[in-house]
Design a binder for these strands. Sequence first.
DNA 1: TTTTCGCTCACCCGAAAGGATGAATCGATG
DNA 2: CATCGATTCATCCTTTCGGGTGAGCGAAAA
Lengths: 152, 152
Amino acid sequence: MILIIHTIFVWMRKGIIYGLALAALFFVLRWIEYKFVIREFSREFYIGLIAVIFVVVGVWAGRKLTTTKRIVKETAPLFVVNQENLSRLEISKRELEVLDLMAQGLSNQQIADRLALSLNTVKTHTSNLFIRLDVKRRTQAIQKGKDLKLIP
Amino acid sequence: MILIIHTIFVWMRKGIIYGLALAALFFVLRWIEYKFVIREFSREFYIGLIAVIFVVVGVWAGRKLTTTKRIVKETAPLFVVNQENLSRLEISKRELEVLDLMAQGLSNQQIADRLALSLNTVKTHTSNLFIRLDVKRRTQAIQKGKDLKLIP
DNA sequence: TTTTCGCTCACCCGAAAGGATGAATCGATG
DNA sequence: CATCGATTCATCCTTTCGGGTGAGCGAAAA
């Protein structure tokens, strides 16, 4: 909700900025008109000048819009677990935790310490994980876990 | 070299297309001018119309340019080995090969078969790798290898 | 309430991985 | 030529992993 309000606010601010820029440009055009151009150059040149200026403005505005979009995309490569794969393979929360720590390069003993479990329990979880992921080694499990978007 | 020529060609084609588009727009403007507008509406309205049209053109052109760039980036996430890290850590070609296969989830025996080596040789390479990467387990080596852009 | 399921832990055994050390070969480099 | 580094292979030993099995416990579902 807050995000939506913020987005609207940003867009309003954008609109105001672009509106001010356009207004400023119109004043500049009026100034050019009365100072130099209109009587000395041809109408086509004047139109062309306006066209070029506004093409530039358009490109600038377009770039602003698209680049801000891209920044949003790039600063939010947030990982979300693929719940479909998770439930399809019947992987429990605990098993996923173990898989995550496994992928961080921890040994079973270290995982046991981290999760306050016994080594045997961790081994049970890993064994079940290997069965569910249909792999034989932890390195394969890590690979497959990443492929299936179960871990970042 | 071929890539450069191709790029230049693409840009030339872009230029021609945009040029044609602009020319077409000028003709449209002339047509509007002689058919309807110039005598009936004010000069400001006419200028505004041109401005709006060319802003749209600019946005369109800008989007075209930036989006094609983005497509190029997205369709070419080609992996290149970070040679600095490679030489800094004194990792040899053979060791890198072993690391790569290791990251694919292969066992030492499978790596030995794949590279036509003995198991002992592979174990030597892995041991040296762990020393150079300053890790204790193959899972950590894989992690660090990816962080250092040694493997994809 | 009984069953089911996830989580926990244990024991055993074999396979794989890791650590340490020594050594032979071969190409490049001084 | 002699030396150095990369590569290859070996042996011995310890630790970690992986597979199989059994079992207790607690919460949720039937």
